[in-house]
Design a binder for these strands. Structure first.
Lengths: 108, 108
DNA sequence: ACTGGTACATGGTAACACCGAGTACCAGTA
DNA sequence: TACTGGTACTCGGTGTTACCATGTACCAGT
């Protein structure tokens, strides 16, 4: 699938929130997880900028822990604000996707 | 629903293409149509910038016609490139929305 | 010493939706 | 006549976002 980046704007951050909400995890693993899920072109740099933004906006708790196979990892988990933001994200997603799908079906 | 603008990025242009694909129409009417469809905060200025972009990218044919109730209207219709772009848009939408919904369900 | 996988940070870019202000046409009305 | 309100389009500027390129650095195996 060619160039999905514009369409991911505004949703990729929510996806990262969702992954973190599932379990405490870190940037490199989040990137791999998103790739597995079909977001194949999402690259580390993108995820790290999102994580720094989440941290700056106070949506996550951060803990640095050593790794046995490389440099230390920064583990992220959602705090209250993060969980609320995640809920808002899914509400928005449901709203918008419903409307877009309706537009699509009315055309057909 | 609060502030959907980021999530609309990359999709609103496709929605405009779809509306034009349904029938030849003009900016002001497209804005009203989108508002009806639930994209309540989409405003004229936004639609016009999209239309100018579509025109610049050669995806639409433009015809100016007088109106009986105001200034002349610029009517837009899809050309071949526009229909192809619209098809690509729906393919991307299906791809991404499927993956996001999957992510959502695996969480639940 | 070298390679490759792991792990994070950062300055710059392009694209997008949005905003604000402006221009202009027309009908109805006070 | 002047004014209002609905119709209709344009354009310069803004903030946010995902992406890119590059750099740093840890570690295991050869």
């Amino acid at each position: 699938m060619e160039d999905l980046t514009e369409m991911l704007k505004g949703t990729l951050e929510g996806c990262v929130l969702e992954v973190i909400g599932g379990e405490e995890t870190y940037g490199y693993a989040i990137t791999r997880r998103l790739n597995e899920l079909g977001f194949v072109d999402v690259i580390e740099g993108t995820v790290y900028t999102i994580l720094l933004r989440l941290e700056r906006n106070g949506l996550v708790e951060v803990t640095k822990r050593p790794s046995e196979v490389g440099p230390p990892r920064k583990f992220y988990s959602l705090n209250k604000a993060g969980r609320e933001e995640l809920a808002r994200f899914w509400a928005k997603w449901q709203y918008i996707s419903a409307r877009i799908n309706k537009l699509k079906e009315e055309a057909a």
